Amino acid sequence: MQIILARHGQPELRLDSWFRPMALQEWLRLYDAAGLAPGAVPAAIRAQAAAVGVLACSDLRRCTESAQRLAPGRAVLGEALFREAEPPWPAWLAPRLPPLAWAAMFRLARFPVPARPAPVTAQRARQAAQRLVELARRHGSVLLVGHGLMGQLIARELRALGWQGPRQPASGYWQCSVYRAPD
């Protein structure tokens, strides 16, 4: 049995705009509604998607469109359980920074070293890992098209369950990591 954790393709959204932290919630809403930027899907991940027993994804648009590009015409199991972990957002008026800087700062604030997710997020990651294990048992293999941070948290849970794979899953667009069931 195997579980493949893949990150979605690049979203069609400008990441170079600057804004105040109190506007992060609105920017995240736009990010969640964004589709995919044009571009080819790497052949290696397309082959993995074609070979798995079941294809699953977060129900956010960038993931569902990614799954459709990976395996056109194939049924995809989209679930809210696999959505990205949401960063906190304070109501500060300053300073203005790009979204990637805010995301990094909020994640560091929320997940101090050693990284510990908020209890609700940790519980959802645990449930997501258990759901993937269930799907892998039923279908032999599953590929999840998901998100960067939630992918890391799911990987942590899979490893805690004895699955073998990288400690830190690949986090670039269209990159994936394979986890194998314990013997």
Rank of each mutant, 00 (worst) to 15 (best):
R138K: 09
R124W: 06
F19G: 05
Q130C: 11
L70S: 03
A125M: 02
G78Y: 10
G73Y: 14
Q68I: 02
L60V: 14
G146P: 08
F111W: 15
Q130L: 15
G78T: 08
A155W: 11
G35M: 11
P112Y: 14
R46Y: 00
L135Q: 14
E79L: 15
A115T: 07
P72M: 06
W18D: 00
A115C: 05
A104N: 02
P88A: 10
M150E: 03
L5M: 06
A71Q: 06
V145C: 03
Y31W: 04
V52S: 09
A125L: 02
I154S: 05
I3V: 15
L28D: 07
P87T: 11
W89E: 10
A37Q: 12
A101S: 11
E65M: 11
G162E: 13
A23Y: 07
R61E: 12
A170E: 10
P112C: 13
A49C: 09
G53H: 04
L5G: 02
W102C: 10
E134L: 10
L93E: 07
A85F: 09
A71E: 04
P72S: 04
L161S: 11
R131D: 06
L97P: 15
A181P: 06
V113F: 14
L144V: 05
L13G: 02
V54G: 01
W163F: 14
A34P: 12
P87A: 03
F111L: 06
A43P: 00
F111C: 05
A80W: 04
R20D: 05
L77S: 13
G151R: 08
M105H: 05
S58H: 08
R107S: 11
L97R: 08
L28R: 13
P99N: 00
W174L: 02
Q127Y: 02
L30W: 00
L93H: 09
C57R: 08
A56L: 09
E86Y: 09
A129W: 00
P42L: 12
M1C: 01
A91W: 13
A51H: 03
F106V: 15
V54W: 01
C57N: 01
A91R: 13
E84C: 09
R29W: 01
A51S: 14
V133H: 06
F111E: 10
A91E: 09
L158S: 10
L24F: 15
Q152H: 07
W102K: 06
G78D: 04
R83V: 13
P72W: 03
Y179F: 15
